[in-house]
Amino acid sequence: MTERRSWTRDELLVAFHFYNQTPFGKISHRNPEIINTAKLMGRTPSSLSMKMANIASCDPSITASGRSGLSGAAKADREMWQEMTRDWENFFFNASEAFNKINKLQSPEAEAVCPDPSLELDDFHGQEKLATIKTRVGQQQFRAVVLSAYDFRCCITGIDIPELLIASHIVPWSRDPQQRLNPSNGLCLSSLHDAAFDKGLISLNEHLELMLSPKLLNSSNDYLANSFEPYEGKPITNPSKHLPNPIFLQHHRSEIFHKQR
């Protein structure tokens, strides 16, 4: 087997798929998931992990933190990074298709579930059906990417039970369709803190420190006090990738956060 053969588009999509869903510190040829998928691709684990490290050098959130990944990113890597950030929905869908093809799994179209449980995918036709599928796949991928960026821990409390974690949108889903699936528009929060963030009861300042609304601070409920007040003014745990966009956080503070009772 030669390791110098060119990467196909599907293989590169798989590498991006893994990069997005793997915490930065676990990009390693010893990672069992990388080992298994590399074998199916006909590549060594070192080849796949090195490609992921090359992709990291295209990631502004990695380079801005002083980490560099590897410096060997190819032109195709950089072009695919730009393709991804221009259209997250289509990219997530295509990457999922490539991953499932290599792993001989069902395609995203076959496994997608209609977001509205009262409707079946058979009720849709043509472009409408495809759009519904892409939306569902995108939602699944957004959650996977955001949670992995925060190492599957609430960035406020450190809760690490996946069933209790939400990929919370900073700018709400309905307000900016182009940024719905951008991981930099996401925070990993516990279900309680996600609800509070969504309703503007908490926010983050420009230093990524927790802000509490007077509605919470003036509450006499001991459970609420214990769930929020110990974290006031403390910085969140930063993600390893996809840092929250300051512009999105400013929008949350100015348009959603309740500054008064």
Rank of each mutant, 00 (worst) to 15 (best):
L165S: 08
R143K: 03
K241S: 12
S96W: 03
S71G: 14
T22N: 07
Y19D: 06
R67Y: 13
F257C: 07
S68H: 12
P246E: 08
D160L: 10
D151G: 05
D87W: 01
Q106A: 07
K199N: 13
M41F: 10
I62T: 04
Q141R: 14
P172H: 10
I256S: 06
M84K: 08
P235R: 04
G66P: 11
E206F: 00
G158F: 09
Q140R: 15
L204Q: 06
Y231I: 02
R5A: 14
R261I: 07
N185L: 06
R30D: 14
L181R: 10
E232Q: 15
T2D: 12
I133T: 15
L40T: 09
L119P: 07
A144I: 00
L105G: 11
R43D: 05
R175I: 08
L181S: 04
D59G: 09
L105Y: 07
L187T: 03
K241N: 11
C154L: 02
G200I: 08
Y19G: 10
H252F: 01
A167V: 02
Y223L: 14
N205Y: 01
D176S: 13
P214C: 06
G66C: 11
T157I: 01
T8N: 11
G66T: 10
N90D: 13
L105I: 08
W81L: 06
L249D: 03
Q178H: 14
K104G: 13
E206A: 06
D122C: 12
L130F: 07
A38I: 05
M1P: 09
P246Q: 05
H252V: 03
K26D: 15
R30K: 15
L48P: 05
V146R: 03
N100A: 15
Q139H: 12
L48Q: 03
L130P: 11
A15Y: 02
L212A: 02
S68K: 12
F93W: 00
F142G: 00
R5P: 03
K199H: 11
T2H: 11
L105N: 15
L189C: 07
F18W: 10
E163T: 05
Q260T: 08
F16W: 13
H29F: 14
N182H: 11
N54P: 01
T132Q: 14
Q179M: 13
E109S: 09
H29L: 11
F124S: 03
L243H: 14
L130I: 04
E229V: 00
L216P: 05
F228Y: 09
Y150A: 03
A98Y: 00
H242I: 00
D198S: 09
D194Q: 05
M80E: 15
P23G: 06
E83F: 10
H193R: 12
V146Y: 04
A95E: 02
D116C: 11
A38P: 04
P177G: 04
S47K: 12
K51V: 13
M52Y: 13
A149V: 06
F16D: 07
R180T: 08
G42W: 10
N221Y: 05
H29C: 12
L130H: 02
A98R: 00
D194G: 11
V146E: 00
S28M: 02
S220Y: 11
N245L: 12
I102E: 08
R30A: 15
F257P: 08
P239C: 03
G42L: 04
V171E: 03
H17T: 09
L216Y: 07
S47H: 09
S65F: 08
G158Y: 06
S107T: 09
D176K: 14
S107W: 06
S203H: 04
P246N: 05
T237M: 04
